[in-house]
């Protein structure tokens, strides 16, 4: 009896399912073969563990299933030996890359994910209408890059959007003022109109400057300040 025969019979041997002749053969082989003896010991230990730890947990026919699995494992290990061939070297598969390829790929992934994260954060923490417009024109290299690739707004777009947002507040307070102003005396009406006109003149002036130079931070800041003045004026007069 050789090792292959022995190992195929070893489980049956341990379950005392072999006839006396084959059982004797196995016993003799185990006495002479260290490898098979070790396999036998390991299986015995496994069985011991299963019988003590899994007591009451495992189903009745579970030991058979385990044996089947152990057999399968043993057979799969034996197959290459039976074929007499050496273990196959790892094939150079489709997903196997060199170090530099992997490094380049990782760098690309890091760059793209950083860009996406920055863009997402910028969109998520978008400044509200009350935030300064001045931030619209301050650009780092990253900002410019993002504008180029279309992940961020250009200064003109930012200013326009923020002006639209601010315009919503102005429209709201203006509606309230219009509803109230019929009750005001003529002096109050005149004073309100005069001041609003002054503010609008300033706004027009800044608009003109920004059309020439959209990146003029100071003008953007001043426009922001005048817009605040306008909102304040409308709000203050809306409760008269």
């Amino acid at each position: 009896m050789d090792c292959v025969d022995c190992k195929s019979l070893i489980t049956a041997f341990m379950d005392s399912d072999l006839d006396s002749e084959r059982s004797e053969f196995v016993r003799m082989h185990l006495a002479n073969c260290d490898d098979c003896a070790r396999v036998c010991e390991e299986i015995a230990m496994l069985l011991d563990v299963i019988s003590t730890e899994g007591e009451g947990v495992l189903p009745e026919n579970h030991s058979k299933q385990i044996w089947c699995r152990i057999n399968n494992v043993i057979e799969s290990e034996q197959k290459p030996l039976l074929d007499g061939s050496q273990p196959e070297p790892h094939r150079r598969g489709l997903w196997h890359f060199s170090f530099w390829q992997l490094a380049a790929a990782l760098a690309c992934i890091a760059l793209v994910s950083s860009l996406i994260t920055v863009a997402a954060l910028r969109n998520y923490y978008e400044p509200s209408a009350t935030d300064s417009l001045a931030s619209a024109t301050s650009h780092t290299f990253m900002d410019r890059l993002m504008i180029r690739v279309g992940l961020a707004e250009s200064p003109e777009e930012q200013i326009e959007r923020k002006l639209r947002d601010r315009q919503a507040a102005i429209d709201y307070w203006n509606t309230r003022v219009q509803a109230r102003r019929t009750q005001w005396d003529s002096q109050t009406r005149a004073a309100f109109d005069r001041n609003l006109r002054e503010i609008d003149d300033s706004l027009n002036e800044y608009h003109t400057i920004l059309q020439r130079d959209p990146e003029d931070d100071l003008t953007v800041e001043m426009m922001d300040s005048v817009l605040n003045e306008k909102v304040d004026l409308l709000r203050d007069f809306s409760d008269l």
């Binding site: 109230r180 019929t182 009750q183 005001w184 005396d185 409760d239 008269l240």
Partner: peptide, 9 residues
């Protein structure tokens, strides 16, 4: 302002 709310004139 509060004491004269609703009074236009």
């Amino acid at each position: 302002v509060r004491d004269n709310e609703g009074r236009g004139d």
